[in-house]
Design a protein around this nucleic acid. Structure first.
Lengths: 228, 228
DNA sequence: TTTTTACTTATTGTCGACAATCTGATGCTC
DNA sequence: GAGCATCAGATTGTCGACAATAAGTAAAAA
C-alpha cells in the first residue's frame, strides 16, 4: 500500500493503525513499553485479528519490535538509532531531490512554493509553536519525495521511515533558531529543483537533514546526561 | 524482524511465508496471478490467520499488491518497475559499500574473499549454470550489505527489496558473458573495501548493478517484442 | 440492443475460543 | 544461601465460523 494510493476502503485495522501509530509517535504510549494485545484490543474496542494486522504494519515502519511468542515492544529512541536512520534519510532524500529536479512539473513546483509561503505566514503568527513547524516540514519533504516519481523510494520514505523520523522530532523537539532557519533551507531546495539543478538540491537537502540531526542529537545527549 | 536476528522460534506463518515467497520468486505462482486466501490455505494446509500474516509480509517486500476487500495479486514485472527498483538499489548498495569500507572488520573481509574463491571454483565446475551464479551473487551482496552495519539499510535491502530483485533475475535470467564478468567485479569491489576506499567501492558497485540492470532490461524488451 | 438493477456467489474482514509457548514465582536440592 | 527444576498464570499463535463487502450473472426496463 503506497502513500499514493487512494483510500478505497477503510477497514478497522486501518483505523486502529492510525490511532496506535499517532499514540506512539506522540509519546502517549511511551518508548520501550511492552505491547499487550489483549489490553490494546480492549482499549480500542476490537478483536485481536485487526489489531495484529495493525501491529504488523507498525513493525514495518520500525515503531515496534516483535519477537515470536514473546510479544511486541515500542521502539526505544537512541543516538545510534538516530544516526543510522538519518544516515539513510540523507541518502534517500538526496536521491529524491535529484529525481524531483528531473521529474517534477512546473505545476507541482508552484504548489510547493505556495505551500511554503503559506507555512511562512502561519509560522509568523504562531511564533515558536513547534507543532506547525513540524507539520509544515513533513509536508514539504513529502511533496519533494512524491516529486521523485519513484514508487519504491516514495514507499520507503513516506510509509516506512517517516513515522520514526517524526517520533524523534516530536519527542525530542526542534528548538531555538532551527525553526526559522529551516524555512530558508526549504526555499533554497525548491529553488534548486525549479532550476533543474539536481546536484545542488541534493547537496542542500543533505545539509538540511544533517542540521536537523545535530539538533535532535544534542537534545538526546542533554537528556541522557541529565537524567541518567 | 531484521535479517540479522537469530531464528528464535519458527511459527507456521514463517514457514508458509518462505514457501509462498520462493513460489513467487521462482515463478511457480506466475506474475499477475490473483491470490485466493482459501485456496492457498488449503494448498499449504493451514488456516487463514497465519496465511494473512504471511501475505502482509509479502506485501512488505513488494511481491504482492493488496487492495482492501478486493484481495491480493502477485506483482507484475515491468521495465518501469525494474528501473525504479534498480535506481534505488544502485543508491542503497552504493551507500552500503561506503559504509562497509568504513566498518567491515578484516575478518569479515577475509571471509568474503574466501567466499568469492569458493564461488569461482564452483562456477568453473558448473559452467553456465545460472542458479549457482544467482546464489553466489546474492550471497556476496548480502555480505557487503551486512558490512554496512546500518540496521535500517540492512533491513530495506535484504528483507524488502532483495526478493523482488531476485524475482527479476530468476525469471528473466542472467545470460552470456555477464556471468563470468560479475566475478571480476565482485573481486574489484571487495578489494576497494579492503583498501578502505569507500568512494571507489561505491562507484564500482553502482556500475556493477547498472550492468546487471541493462542485462535484465534487454531480456524484458526481447520478451516484450517477441511475444506481444 | 443497451443499460440498469437486483440477486447470487464467493471472497475478504472480523470475531471468540482453543492450543502452544513464554514469564515469573515457588519449592526443592546441593 | 545459591542454583535449578517445576508449576501456575498470562500471552501469543492458530483455528473455525460469522458478518460485510465486492464481483459476476441474469432479468427487466428504456
Amino acid at each position: 500500500m503506497l502513500a499514493t494510493d487512494f483510500k478505497e476502503a477503510i477497514t478497522a485495522a486501518d483505523r486502529v493503525l492510525v490511532q496506535i501509530r499517532t499514540a506512539i509517535v506522540e509519546g502517549e504510549i511511551p518508548a520501550g513499553t511492552k505491547i499487550s494485545e489483549p489490553e490494546l484490543a480492549r482499549r480500542y474496542d476490537l478483536s485481536r485479528a485487526p489489531l495484529r494486522e495493525a501491529l504488523a504494519r507498525l513493525e514495518r515502519c520500525h515503531l515496534i519490535e516483535r519477537t515470536p511468542n514473546a510479544g511486541a515492544r515500542v521502539v526505544k529512541l537512541s543516538i545510534e538509532g538516530l544516526r543510522s536512520l538519518y544516515q539513510l534519510r540523507e541518502e534517500l532524500e538526496g536521491l529524491a531531490c535529484r529525481l524531483a529536479a528531473e521529474h517534477m512539473t512546473e505545476q507541482e513546483i508552484a504548489e510547493v512554493r505556495a505551500l511554503l509561503d503559506q507555512h511562512l505566514s502561519t509560522q509568523r503568527v504562531r511564533e515558536g509553536e513547534s507543532y506547525y513547524q513540524e507539520a509544515g516540514d513533513v509536508d514539504f519533504h513529502y511533496r519533494v519525495i512524491l516529486g521523485s516519481k519513484n514508487p519504491y523510494l516514495i514507499n520507503i520514505l513516506s510509509d516506512e521511515l517517516y513515522f520514526l523520523v517524526r517520533m524523534y522530532r516530536v519527542q525530542l523537539g526542534m528548538n531555538g533558531p532551527r525553526v526559522s532557519r529551516a524555512f530558508d533551507e526549504h526555499k533554497a531546495i525548491i529553488n534548486a529543483i525549479a532550476n533543474r539543478d539536481g546536484e545542488l538540491a541534493d547537496l542542500l537537502m543533505r545539509r538540511h537533514i544533517a542540521a536537523s540531526k545535530r539538533n535532535i542529537e544534542q537534545q538526546l545527549l542533554q537528556q541522557g546526561t541529565s537524567h541518567g
